[in-house]
Every structure is written in structure tokens, then in C-alpha cells.
């Protein structure tokens, strides 16, 4: 095995395995900035991934699948927002309920639709820049030759930063997450802003589910996310709700996850259990080191009732 082939495999795997995580974490960052702690990302990813897969398979159109996933995620976000913003339900309980419901419903629907069959999607949306990286070792196939979803994910990073830091709506989101009462007094419709943030959060979760099922894997299976949604919540906190930091943290997580496989391939004599523990250990260490002094959005997890709450 050549070093070049191994490095290419490591880098390519690092990048692709960070995609869904980055997208879901960016969505969570928007939600948390508005004061919404969404523990339902996992379930939203699962149900959106299934809906997108079903739509893509039935229509033989991957773009339609992506659209269906995003819409499904947005609807799930609206349900979450409706329950926690309008009905003032506890965010933690609603989020966990959505994770359980999304996992159960996607598994049930998959079984109803396909039984014991495992259909795979035909074709993919391609690698748009592959021709540019032909002669470049490692970087060419591992980065330039990546699937288009990788570049969309990277484009979302500055876009979300711009949304949160450079737009009026972004300022309203942050105000709703820090001082909802003050924002309300200043004329911001906190309910509307939080609902919109929940919908965007859901749409990002839907896109993350589609990135996993439609772009990376080309199929859906019940429970396919295996905890990605929960890792995304940790990554959003490690990244302190800053899109660039989130992208880097997700890449580091992807690197640690891929490094485990890479070390097994190269014959490093370490027990697989330890290697598989690495990425999660990395998240814990990162939270301790990077997020120790982090100040959470002041109103994170708290509901706001106009005329009653004064925080």
C-alpha cells in the first residue's frame, strides 16, 4: 500500500464523514443562538433522510429527494418550534420526544415501504471539480474530487456566519437568545424570530439527513445516523456557535473517526475499541478545553411569554 493512497483515503474519509455533522451543527447553532436547545436533530435527520430517500427513489430524481428532505426537516422544525415557542413546552422533553418519534417513524415507514429489501439509489449528483484535480496527488482526489455536497457544505459556513453576524435577522436571532425581553421591548417579535430559527434549524437537519442518505451513502436504513445528531449538538457547543469553528471541529471529529480505520489498515497494533473511542474522547476533551469558558446564550432552553417573562 502506498503512502499516497493511504493519505488520500484518510483525507477523503475525513472530509466526507464531516459533512452531515457540519450541516446539522450549523443548524443547531442557529437554533441555540435564538435560545432553542433542539435535542431532536437526530430524529429530524432520520425522518428527513427517509422522506428524501423515498422521494428520490420514487421520482428517480435526487434533487427532488433533497428538496423533500429539506421541506420535511423544516416541517419538523415548525412542529418543534410550535410546541416549545407557542405551547411553551419544555425544550429538552420535546427534543428527546422528536428524536424518538423520528427514529421510530422512519423505521416503521421504511419497513412498510420496502420490507426486507434494501433499495439503493441509482447514480449520484457527481463530483463537479474532479477534472480540475486530475494530476494533483492526494489533494486532487481527496479534496478537489469530492462530491458536490462537500462544496455546498463549505459554502454554507460563510453563509451562516453572514446570516448570524451581518444581517438584521441574525441580530434578532441572537437578541432572542440572549435577552428576549429586551428584544421584545426594542420591537423584535421574539415569537416569530424563534419560530423561524426553529424552522431553519429543522431545514438544516433535513439537509444533513439528505447529505448522509442521498449524497454520501446512496441509501437509507433505519437508525442510519447512529448518533450524528447528538454529536452535532456537542460540535455546535465546541464551536461556540461560530460557523468557522464548527466546521473545523466537525473536520477534527471526522479526522479522529477516520484515523481509527486508517490505523487499523496500516496495521497499528492498538485495540479497535480504543480507536473507535477516539472521536468521542476528542469531543469530550474539546468541550473541556475549548468550551470551558464559553458563555451559553443567556436564554438558551428558556421559553418566553410576552408580558410575563422579564428576562
Amino acid at each position: 500500500m502506498s503512502i499516497e493512497a493511504l493519505l488520500t483515503a484518510l483525507l477523503a474519509s475525513t472530509i466526507i464523514s464531516s459533512v452531515a455533522l457540519t450541516i446539522a451543527s450549523l443548524g443547531e447553532a442557529i437554533g441555540e443562538s435564538a435560545g432553542l436547545l433542539n435535542l431532536g436533530i437526530e430524529g429530524m435527520m432520520l425522518i428527513s433522510g427517509f422522506v428524501g430517500f423515498w422521494a428520490a427513489l420514487e421520482s428517480n430524481n435526487l434533487w427532488l429527494g433533497f428538496l423533500a428532505s429539506i421541506v420535511c426537516g423544516a416541517v419538523a422544525g415548525l412542529i418543534f418550534g410550535g410546541l416549545v415557542v407557542l405551547a411553551q413546552a419544555d425544550q429538552v422533553i420535546v427534543g428527546l420526544a422528536m428524536t424518538l418519534a423520528g427514529g421510530g417513524l422512519s423505521g416503521y415507514l421504511f419497513r412498510e415501504a420496502y420490507g426486507s429489501n434494501q433499495p439503493l439509489l441509482q447514480g449520484d449528483l457527481g463530483r463537479p471539480l474532479r477534472h480540475l484535480g486530475g494530476g494533483i496527488p492526494v489533494i486532487g482526489p481527496a479534496i478537489i474530487g469530492q462530491k458536490w455536497i462537500v462544496f455546498v457544505t463549505w459554502a454554507l459556513v460563510p453563509l451562516v456566519w453572514w446570516l448570524l453576524r451581518r444581517t438584521r435577522f441574525g441580530l434578532e436571532i441572537r437578541a432572542a437568545g440572549e435577552r428576549p425581553f429586551a428584544a421584545d421591548v426594542a420591537g423584535v417579535d421574539v415569537t416569530r424570530v424563534r419560530l423561524l430559527a426553529a424552522v431553519i434549524n429543522g431545514a438544516f437537519s433535513g439537509l444533513a439527513g439528505a447529505a448522509l442518505a442521498l449524497a454520501e451513502l446512496g441509501f437509507f436504513r433505519p437508525g442510519i445516523t447512529v448518533g450524528t445528531g447528538f454529536i452535532a449538538i456537542a460540535i455546535a457547543m465546541v464551536g461556540r456557535w461560530d460557523p468557522l469553528r464548527i466546521a473545523i471541529a466537525a473536520l477534527l471529529f471526522g479526522l479522529l473517526r477516520s484515523a481509527g480505520t486508517w490505523m487499523q489498515i496500516t496495521g497499528v497494533n492498538i485495540r479497535p475499541e480504543f480507536l473507535q473511542m477516539l472521536p468521542y474522547l476528542g469531543v469530550i476533551v474539546a468541550i473541556v478545553i475549548l468550551a470551558r469558558g464559553t458563555r451559553l446564550p443567556a436564554a438558551l432552553g428558556l421559553s418566553y411569554r410576552r408580558g410575563i417573562d422579564r428576562t
Partner: peptide, 14 residues
Amino acid sequence: AANAKRTTDSVLAA
């Protein structure tokens, strides 16, 4: 299945 795919991608690349 997701990590199975990533792992298999890597062994094929090797």
C-alpha cells in the same frame, strides 16, 4: 451502514 461504507471506502483505497 454509514461507517461501514467509510471503512470499506478506505480498505478499497488501500
